[in-house]
């Protein structure tokens, strides 16, 4: 039973009725259990409110490392909003990825402070070494994804490189490549899950 499609922003939408789409009768998914129990849980936790779309997608991405289309569809159905709107939100915010990301997230700060301290040659060197581009930021082996980020707030250490959660300050192209090499070496020795 799909009802109450919330497309307008006027007035705070109420939570969809508890009996909403998951238990939809007479459709092909009717007898199947919730296809993505973890996502279902996240949506429940946010009270099935369409207004919570952004935090829901954040938590879903935490779970899957990106936002696969079938999950986005599922989120849309569960919140009773149009899938096109969910897709629109997922592609609007830089934090969301609709393509799988690599195991290690390499983020180079390109805030003003880092930029004037020559972050671009570092980025070029990293991309060249890993064979990635702005359009294709992930290595074929899905080991690295290279992104730029507009300021990490560590301008005192410019230029700054962040690999996963580790911050490296005062980078040069050589130092940055050495950092990546050490990550790769670590993977060779004992691959992380």
């Amino acid at each position: 039973m799909i009802s109450n499609l919330n497309l307008e922003t006027q007035g705070q939408p109420e939570a969809a009725p508890a009996s909403a789409p998951l238990s939809k009768p007479s459709t092909k998914n009717s007898l199947a259990p919730a296809p993505f129990p973890k996502v279902a849980l996240i949506i429940e936790r946010h009270g099935r409110k369409p207004a919570r779309l952004v935090p829901i997608l954040q938590e879903v991405q935490e779970e899957y490392r990106y936002l696969p289309p079938d999950i986005l569809s599922y989120v849309a159905r569960s919140l009773n909003i149009a899938p096109a709107r969910v897709f629109g939100v997922a592609t609007f915010y830089a934090h969301f990825a609709i393509k799988p990301k690599g195991k290690h997230l390499v983020r180079l700060c390109d805030g003003t402070a880092c930029h004037v301290k020559d972050s671009v040659p570092i980025l070029d060197a990293i991309r060249f070494r890993l064979g990635v581009t702005e359009a294709q930021p992930t290595t074929r082996d899905l080991l690295f994804t290279v992104e730029t980020v507009a300021c990490l707030g560590a301008c005192g250490l410019a230029p700054v490189l962040v690999v996963d959660d580790q911050v490296y300050g005062a980078m040069t192209p050589e130092k940055a490549l050495a950092v990546l090499e050490s990550v790769r070496e670590q993977e060779r020795k004992e691959p992380s899950p």
Binding site: E8, A82, A84, R85, G88, F92
Partner: peptide, 12 residues
């Protein structure tokens, strides 16, 4: 979205 409440297309 507003007249038909379908939302088949949206900005992306």
């Amino acid at each position: 979205a507003e007249v038909q409440s379908v939302g088949a297309i949206d900005f992306a």
